[in-house]
Amino acid sequence: MTVFAAASIAVLVALFLAVVRALKGPTVFDRVLAGNSIGTGAIMLLALFGFLTERPEFLDIGILYALLNIIGTLAVLKFFRHGDLSHPGGEEPSEN
């Protein structure tokens, strides 16, 4: 049990640093990257908390977070690249 508590504290420290970067980040890409790392840290924290409290049902929520994390990151990046979530993608024409 002690190792789970220690790992939870380490993940919390990592989450704090990532949140500071997400608040400070000079560009939007720093914030997106920090948001992705916050998502990974949240998954780890959910799994560790499930072991800490002997309730492995938290892992299902962790799977959900892992699946939503990548979708959210890609959606935000597509929005900031094309300005439109329904953009078909691909290379933009040079003269526009």
Binding site: A6, A7, A10, V13, A14, L17, A18, R21, S37, G41
Partner: peptide, 22 residues
Amino acid sequence: LIVMGSFFFVVGAVGIFRMPDV
């Protein structure tokens, strides 16, 4: 393994905090 993973997790977060550009 969990202790090693915590170490690498904190190392990565410190890198995200301190590295100079994106």
